[in-house]
Design a protein around this nucleic acid. Structure first.
Lengths: 343, 343
DNA sequence: CTTGACAATGCAACCGGTTGCAATTATACT
DNA sequence: AGTATAATTGCAACCGGTTGCATTGTCAAG
């Protein structure tokens, strides 16, 4: 592997001149440039990125941490779409993405701190949706540029984040169902410990409240983002008899599918008897029976935006500090309609 | 950011001693170790991974390149499952994954060569399924450790790869359909330029040949891995009338769904009138109507295996040279059955 | 013909760890 | 006690680019 000094010798110049040629510095004469390039070419020289990083104190890399142990993560749309957004923008800026595996939530934090602490990346996008206060504080202490995908705890409102206003758009979904005449509406959230679950619940409650409806506690359930969670929720709510919901909102499409299947197994027709709305607008929603009305959350766009903010701050040499809220979009298909008239 | 020398000064030892403590070298006395650790702790010292990489000539990182422009890539199961396998193994060895975006196939090669040439990663897993001879040669010239996910051109049979024996298991699927009595079987491949498409066609042809059946050329079509591709295939084959297939094998679940929908729109029942088998055993297959029989391809396992081979070679200091074939598994659901008796 | 101004290049220190070898110290054995 | 041997630690060069500053070269104006 030839180094900059080999090239310098061959071209009869000083190593620093070769460096200047390869980092596109001005004030190199055309003839010298040519000579250096020729020598480099002949030797098959390619600058060593690690040495460069050490010297300029920048890696042109941003990092994320991913729990590789959690299977569902790789079946859902969140991770791949986030990757797409990340790659699109990093590519544009000539950056790359360093991905660290992690064995769980706590370890994700360890990994991120390790990466920024050892300067393996210039900044990070934090995907976790439970933003422990200590992670944020630690990142701030490290003086490491970061952008959260999701909103932080109010006590860290000042840090940079990109979020999807889950409360607002969940409220909108509920309003859509209310507008069609539903009065008994169920909320099937994911993991109750996760921020987005709480946000959606907030939107759900607000919509019902605005409509003057006092929701039964039984209308709220958690399905942990898996199909069976949706089925279980239906099973429990069906026991309410007259008070069972006429519409279900589920926080991802997989749970919504579970809801639909459970309802259909009870002989109920969708949307004639019961309406169902999912979240994420995945292929599952497109191909469900009936096709599932679903709240599209543009994870890819969010990730792209977060990455832009991050890289621009890195290049400008300051900490990211923007806060962005990205709109969602209800994709209407055939799984939701007016409630049965005789209900 | 404190350096090893700051710690050394504080602990009253030589920098090399601090280095030895932090890289777990033996022959450091307990008392010195303690003193160094205390000083490091007090200063908040964390070793600089870049400097270390430069010195030891290893990054503990492996790389992949991904075409971020191709949307379908992020909707299918291949990429996320591969990432899962990669992360699982890299994590185990304390490695990380560097992901480079790329604007297309040719650029993927550029990115990979750039990464290994600039020594940003110790090795790469090549995901592309069209293994241009020049990429492989270039990687070999660079002396860069790499493992292919998929089989290379026969002229490079010697390089390391992990593949899923697509021909054999496609043959098995066709045999399954033959065994139920089908005689007119369609093959709906993906992109005809891609290696896996040709391999599956090989298996398809072999199975029919073995059964003494000469397939019509019209029974072979390409759907480019999208739903509409499946629909189009059905549309074209339906024109064959009496000679239309009674069973379809599609090279991914999305095309299989397209096939099913197109058939159902023609009033045909699945599997009573026509059978359909998909590939990948995705959630789409699980939730299709009827549930789709699908050939599971363990991408995650393949990626894990490839990563193991790669990292072990890196650690051992030689080039990877293993070739591994991983079995697939036909997951039987409800979309395939015997053909109609009066056919 | 001299001097000034600027462009091009060289010099050397620096980025922050690592490691072979030498020097020092501690332990063991006669 | 005296020396052989092993365990610790220090020294200094090295990994491969980068960059502020000094030096040399060039051309134009005075």
């Amino acid at each position: 592997m030839p180094t900059i000094r080999d090239v310098a010798e061959k071209a009869g110049v000083h190593p620093s001149t070769v460096s200047r040629v390869f980092s596109g510095k001005p004030s190199i004469s055309q003839t010298t440039r040519q000579r250096v390039l020729a020598a480099a070419d002949e030797l098959g020289f390619q600058p060593n990125a690690i040495a460069r990083s050490l010297s300029i104190q920048r890696t042109n890399t941003i990092a994320i941490a991913v729990s590789h142990a959690y299977q569902g993560y790789f079946e859902d749309v969140f991770f791949p779409q986030v990757m797409q957004g990340l790659l699109e923008i990093t590519y544009k800026y000539g950056f790359r993405v360093l991905v660290a595996g992690s064995s769980g939530h706590a370890d994700e934090i360890t990994q991120l701190l390790d990466i920024v602490g050892s300067r393996q990346a210039d900044g990070i996008v934090v995907l976790s949706n439970r933003f422990d206060v200590d992670l944020i504080s630690a990142l701030q202490n490290q003086n490491a540029p970061f952008v959260l995908l999701g909103k932080p705890d109010p006590s860290h409102a000042g840090c940079a984040w990109v979020d999807s206003d889950d409360a607002k758009y969940t409220e909108q979904v509920i309003n859509y169902l209310l507008g069609m005449g539903h009065r008994r509406i169920a909320y099937v959230g994911g993991d109750p410990d996760v921020l987005v679950t709480k946000e959606r619940l907030r939107g759900y409650s607000a919509a019902l409240q605005n409509a003057g409806i006092q929701p039964l506690p039984e209308w709220v359930d958690y399905g942990f983002f898996v199909e069976d969670g949706g089925r279980q929720a239906v099973r429990r709510m069906s026991r309410l008899g007259e008070l069972a919901p006429t519409a279900y909102y589920a926080a991802n499409d997989l749970m919504a599918i579970g809801v639909m299947k459970a309802l259909q197994e009870q002989g109920l027709r969708i949307p004639a008897d019961v309406s169902v709305v999912g979240t994420n607008d995945s292929l599952l929603a497109v191909h469900a029976h009936p096709p599932l009305t679903s709240l599209f959350v543009p994870y890819s766009v969010m990730a792209a935006r977060a990455t832009s903010i991050l890289i621009q701050s890195i290049l400008a040499g300051h900490m990211p500090n923007q806060q962005v809220t990205i709109p969602c979009n209800l994709v209407i298909r055939a799984s939701a309609g007016p409630p049965p008239v005789l209900s």
